[in-house]
Computed example of a mutant assay.
Amino acid sequence: MTAPTAGGILAATDAMRSDQQTYTREQVAYLMHLAYDSGRTARYVGDLAELHAGWARHPIQRPTAEQRYAERMAEMTAAAGQVNAELGRPAGYRYDGGPVQWEPEVKG
């Protein structure tokens, strides 16, 4: 079934207010769909209200996207420093591209 339309909702409302005692299978299906959709929407709105009320009761400073990005970059910088230390590279070493010497030079 398609999503309810304004015209369909008005037609269903008019049909329910009329003296009509019986409804067609399509009308019943449409009314059931409207009831289900209405309940689902109400539950969703209720869940959102509960969520926002919980946030209001317990105000926690949530990090912004910029703060989360800065934290992640700091983690990656620390991890890179650890890898550099394990490989014997100087502190703050950064490879910026260019040729790589894959085989070590033999001295002596």
Rank of each mutant, 00 (worst) to 15 (best):
I60H: 15
M76W: 07
P99K: 05
Y30W: 07
T5R: 03
L31N: 12
E71A: 07
T13F: 02
W55R: 15
T2P: 03
P104I: 00
V106Q: 14
L10Q: 05
T5N: 04
E75L: 03
Y23P: 00
G54S: 09
P99A: 10
H33L: 13
Q21I: 11
Q21T: 13
G92A: 12
A65P: 12
Y23L: 13
V83E: 07
L34T: 11
A74S: 09
L34F: 06
A12T: 12
L10W: 01
T2Y: 02
P90Q: 08
A11V: 01
S18E: 07
R43C: 02
A29C: 04
D47E: 13
A91L: 12
E75M: 04
R94H: 10
L10V: 08
R40G: 09
T22V: 08
D37E: 13
R17I: 00
G98E: 06
R57K: 07
N84Q: 12
G98A: 10
D47C: 06
M73Y: 01
L48F: 02
E75I: 01
V106T: 14
Q21E: 06
G98D: 06
I9S: 03
A79L: 11
Q21F: 07
D96N: 14
K107E: 13
G92W: 03
G92I: 01
R68L: 03
A56H: 11
E105N: 11
L51P: 00
M1P: 12
L31W: 09
Q67W: 01
T13C: 04
G108V: 08
G46N: 12
P59S: 11
G7M: 00
D37G: 14
Y30Q: 10
L87Y: 04
G54A: 07
M76D: 14
P59Q: 12
E105M: 11
A91T: 14
Q21R: 15
Q20S: 07
A3H: 03
S38F: 10
M73V: 05
T22R: 13
M16F: 09
D47P: 01
V28N: 11
Q61V: 02
V28D: 09
A11T: 11
A78V: 07
R89T: 00
G54H: 03
L10R: 07
E105I: 13
V28H: 12
A53K: 08
T41M: 14
G39Q: 14
I9Y: 01
P4H: 00
Y30M: 12
N84A: 15
G39V: 12
T22M: 04
E66G: 02
D19W: 02
A35I: 11
R72P: 00
R89Q: 01
A70I: 04
Q82Y: 02
L48C: 03
G88Q: 01
A49I: 06
G97P: 09
A3Q: 05
A70F: 05
H33D: 10
D19T: 06
G54C: 00
R72T: 02
A3D: 06
P63I: 04
R40F: 08
G39P: 03
T13L: 06
G88V: 06
A80P: 00
R25Q: 13
E105G: 02
Y30K: 05
V45S: 09
T5H: 05
M32I: 04
T64L: 07
P4Q: 01
E86P: 03
L48Y: 09
A78S: 15
